[in-house]
């Protein structure tokens, strides 16, 4: 049904692509600095990036790593390219920021630029804008990546010809921690990529970055 063309994992200040370490940052660096380092390394010039919240930045950068050498819209119809993404804390950082502008009634200035980033699917929207994806989009909230469910959902969308390609994964930012796992799935005639393949990739990444 589909194959996994590439996968990336970004956590604990390491960026791995197909299990190979691509970039590593000092452990003491916070993620603001790490994201900046990746942005620079990718040689990006995308002004909208600087308006994004950290969740969008992480999703955006992760997608960029996979898609920089392979524009999908030249291979597939834009409405057949989608995103299936999991996340735990939604936009907690930006939520707290927006809430903090409401506490003092004498200086009450909620900002629309913040408020728009209090929805987790803005992250997927940013990726769609950047890469011209117009297909099925889903943002699921779960404490841990629900591999079985995400795989089943992707399988159904490929089976029903809703999608020919999609990014599937889990993008999470909370307080001082972050984690991003993203893979590119593309339609294939062969049996292809199974639920177990997906599980194995996730387990391997966790082991490598914790070990």
């Amino acid at each position: 049904m589909f194959k996994c063309s590439q996968h990336i994992y970004l956590s604990k200040n390491q960026l791995l692509v197909d299990f190979q370490k691509q970039l590593e940052f000092e452990k003491s660096l916070n993620y603001a600095k790490v994201f900046k380092g990746i942005y620079k390394d990718l040689g990006l010039d995308y002004p909208k990036y600087f308006k994004m919240d950290y969740l969008s930045k992480l999703g955006f950068l992760s997608a960029e790593v996979i898609l920089k050498d392979q524009p999908l819209t030249s291979k597939y119809a834009s409405e057949k390219i989608g995103l299936i993404i999991g996340n735990a804390s939604s936009t907690y950082l930006m939520d707290s920021k927006h809430q903090s502008t409401l506490s003092d009634k004498t200086s009450y200035f909620p900002s629309p630029a913040n408020f728009v980033y209090t929805l987790p699917n803005i992250m997927t929207g940013e990726i769609c804008i950047r890469h011209g994806f117009k297909g099925e989009n889903a943002l699921f909230i779960s404490q841990k990546m629900d591999i079985d469910f995400l795989w089943n959902y992707a399988y159904n969308l490929f089976e029903n010809h809703k999608l020919d390609a999609c990014l599937l994964g889990y993008v999470e930012v909370k307080d001082d921690d972050y984690e991003s796992f993203l893979m590119l799935l593309e339609r294939t005639e062969k049996q292809g990529f199974t639920q177990n393949n997906l599980k194995n990739i996730c387990t391997t990444y966790k082991k490598e970055t914790n070990g």
Partner: peptide, 22 residues
């Protein structure tokens, strides 16, 4: 496990769509 869909204002229609597919 309960699945949560949080896709802004389309969440309600999308939840029906996902349930239908499942």
């Amino acid at each position: 496990p309960v699945q949560v869909i949080s896709n802004a204002c389309i969440s309600g229609v999308e939840a029906l769509s996902i349930g239908y597919r499942m």
